[in-house]
Each structure stands twice: as structure tokens, then as C-alpha cells.
Simulated scan of single mutants.
Amino acid sequence: METKRVDLIREELLRLEEKLLTPEIRTSVKELSLLLAEEFFEYGSSGKVWRIKDGIGSNGIGVVKMQLSDFEIHPLSENIVLATYKIFNEEKEQHSLRSSIWKYEDLKWRMVFHQGTPIV
């Protein structure tokens, strides 16, 4: 994959990951359904597994106060990218490693998988 395209994808996925941390998106079932693929599932830093097919609550997925850093992408194919980064949860005062798999289809990126692993 050419460097310029990788840079553009990195910018877009960073924007989407940061968007997923905002209260406006996290509390909107409509907005979440635009960013998360139908087959989305997550291995949370809590150890819980969550699937979108289990449903998004009426209040979305909850408000968090987190800072994202060290964002990188790792293209797996032309339309699938692994994003990795660190998160600092300001409320729990906890750092975690994060990874997300994004798929590009129908002219947009949607997250299909996410994992959070606490840094001890």
C-alpha cells in the first residue's frame, strides 16, 4: 500500500477512534450504528465480551473520559486495517493497550473488532 494512502487512512481512523471517545457519539445509538459493523464484537479491558448483536443500550455505551496516544495503523489488506494505541482512563487512572480492526466497505470505515488490555 502506498505511503500517501496509508497516511490518509491513518488520519481518518485516528479521527474515528477519537470520535468514539466523545459523549455525543457514545450516547447515540444512531451514531454508534454508523461506526460499528453489524458483526462488531469487543474484548473489553474489564474482561467482558460484548457483541453489537446483543444490542446497544438506550443510552449508548456510556460516557468515558479517556486520552488516546501512540496511534498507529497496520494494514492487513487493501480494505482491512489494524489500529493500535494507548488509552489513559482519567476516571480509573488506568492505562490500557487498545487494538481495533476496521473494514472499508460501502465507501466508509466501520469497526469490526476492538480489544482493551490493562497495562499493569
Rank of each mutant, 00 (worst) to 15 (best):
50 W>Q: 07
81 V>N: 04
35 L>Y: 08
104 Y>F: 14
10 R>H: 10
89 N>L: 00
46 S>D: 09
2 E>D: 15
15 R>E: 10
83 A>R: 10
11 E>N: 14
115 Q>T: 05
86 K>H: 13
109 W>S: 02
98 R>D: 06
29 V>L: 03
11 E>W: 08
94 Q>W: 00
4 K>T: 15
42 E>F: 10
15 R>C: 09
95 H>W: 14
106 D>E: 13
41 F>C: 09
72 E>T: 11
25 I>D: 05
90 E>I: 12
44 G>E: 06
44 G>I: 01
1 M>G: 15
20 L>Q: 06
78 E>L: 13
46 S>G: 03
53 K>V: 15
93 E>Q: 15
65 K>W: 00
53 K>H: 14
51 R>V: 02
18 E>N: 14
62 G>L: 02
100 S>C: 09
114 H>E: 12
111 M>I: 07
73 I>V: 12
3 T>H: 11
54 D>E: 15
20 L>K: 05
59 N>W: 01
103 K>L: 08
37 A>N: 07
77 S>Q: 00
44 G>Q: 06
28 S>C: 10
58 S>A: 03
111 M>R: 11
118 P>W: 02
98 R>Q: 08
97 L>I: 08
52 I>E: 09
34 L>S: 04
98 R>H: 05
13 L>M: 03
45 S>I: 03
68 L>K: 12
52 I>W: 08
54 D>I: 08
26 R>A: 07
19 K>I: 06
63 V>W: 01
98 R>Y: 05
82 L>R: 13
55 G>W: 08
83 A>E: 13
16 L>K: 13
97 L>N: 09
56 I>H: 04
24 E>G: 01
115 Q>M: 02
17 E>L: 10
18 E>V: 08
21 L>A: 13
44 G>H: 03
42 E>K: 11
57 G>N: 04
44 G>W: 01
88 F>A: 09
107 L>G: 05
69 S>N: 05
110 R>W: 10
18 E>W: 05
34 L>W: 00
18 E>A: 11
76 L>E: 04
8 L>P: 02
40 F>M: 04
67 Q>G: 10
53 K>D: 15
116 G>A: 04
36 L>K: 04
26 R>G: 07
42 E>P: 10
93 E>V: 11
92 K>W: 00
100 S>P: 07
103 K>F: 05
34 L>D: 05
10 R>V: 04
5 R>E: 11
79 N>Q: 12
94 Q>F: 00
81 V>D: 03
73 I>Q: 01
78 E>Y: 13
35 L>F: 08
95 H>L: 12
67 Q>P: 03
2 E>S: 15
89 N>V: 00
8 L>K: 12
4 K>C: 10
48 K>V: 10
78 E>S: 14
50 W>A: 08
35 L>M: 12
63 V>C: 01
20 L>F: 06
36 L>W: 06
118 P>A: 02
65 K>A: 02
26 R>F: 07
3 T>F: 11
62 G>R: 03
25 I>E: 05
72 E>M: 07
58 S>Q: 05
9 I>L: 03
59 N>Q: 07
39 E>V: 14
41 F>V: 09
38 E>W: 01
105 E>H: 13
105 E>N: 13
104 Y>T: 01
27 T>F: 00
32 L>G: 13
29 V>Q: 05
78 E>D: 15
113 F>A: 11
47 G>R: 06
53 K>P: 06
34 L>P: 00
